[in-house]
Design a binder for these strands. Sequence first.
DNA 1: GTCAATTCACATGAAAGAGACCACGGTCTAGTG
DNA 2: CTAGACCGTGGTCTCTTTCATGTGAATTGACGA
Length: 402
Amino acid sequence: MAEKELINYFENFLKKEPLFINKKAMQMNYTPENIPHRDDQIKNIAGILAPSLRMEKPSNLFIYGKTGTGKTVSITKVSDDLIKIAKKNNLPLKIVYLNCKLKRVADTEYRLIAQITRELGVEVPATGLPTDEVYKIFIKEIDKEKILLILILDEIDQLVKKIDDGILYNLTRLNHELKNTEISLIGISNDLTFTSELDPRVKSSLGEEELVFPPYNAVQLQSILRERVNIAFRPKAMEEGVIEKCAAYAAREHGDARRALELLRVAGEIAERGNEIHILMKHIDDAQEKIERDRVLDTISTQPKQFKLALYSIFSMTFSDDKPIFTGDIYELYKDACIKVGLKPLTQRRVSDIIAELDMLGIINAKVISKGRYGRTREIRLAIPSSTVPKVKDLLKTGLGL
DNA sequence: GTCAATTCACATGAAAGAGACCACGGTCTAGTG
DNA sequence: CTAGACCGTGGTCTCTTTCATGTGAATTGACGA
């Protein structure tokens, strides 16, 4: 770019009215003033938690709902307000919110307890201590004076999937050991069938109250989007029908409001970068593609080397609809690739697991089929658009030093 | 032709090992008065 | 005498390996029509 052009570009940039006026409102961790279409649920939660203000232990609560149905916003809203009131009246009420899905934060029993203790203001080493030692520290900390602790465990299904439900049992039973303090648990789960796999004892004590967050429909999504758009964008920033389209896209994905907001935000960013005055319909499509591509590239780049190698082997196969590929083929290719890179190949057992995990990540589709006399194996197909394959391959090549 | 047994090529489970990371307590060392 | 360096022990956590068991339908082969 020539000198003059660049200057012009910057000047134009400055002159141009920005699309966003408050981008924060479109970001995920933003808690809006209003949460539309969730009045009933919020009232419900408030009603259940309200006794805590009188220092009575609220019932344990269980909240279900698919992703992006407003569970987390609702609960943070209620707990924020609750804390405000408690502070004003000098009540010893504490609320700890934890997301169990976050890797290396709360995905094991040790780390969960350690993290809660940290939230309460006591430093605990990240590792090195026996688990019951951490329990002791935790108990000592909360039980030294009379407080009421409300523990919110988001994505609790992940926790139970990774460990077992013994930890929940321990937590519910903790109240018996505490002299001063009482603990209430709030579990949030994306998986509606979650409790059926729980130990009946845990199930009954945890699910004293239950609440379901139904998915938003397209009309509700529209009004949510409108509300946020008014805060985030300057007036008349988008073409007619853009919001409707966003809502429709997200409604197709089981009414995920988070998705809808992200879509609109990315569309805005694309429009801004393209020097457009309005967000157009086509920006939504571009955004959809970009989000998907970024997701894939992001998940792949954070995978360990062996995963990349396995994936590279998969992508080295030629895909066609009439000739699917199987685990055995991949493993042969994978072994060759290992030798090329100078890595010790893993066993087939492990590679089998890796393929299953890549399937979970949505990068490939691996279906277990039986070929009768010719054995049982996974039939592997691509789950990403073929247009992104070259990009992924490049990423893998540089990542592996091929 | 029919039906049960066989067989393949992995899937799936459980258990245990390796190696990284870390805290704690005890011992050693060097610097200080 | 004491603060800090340096070990050994014991703990968690992730990634793997090893060993064992499971599995669904194409194939096979016996059997009867």
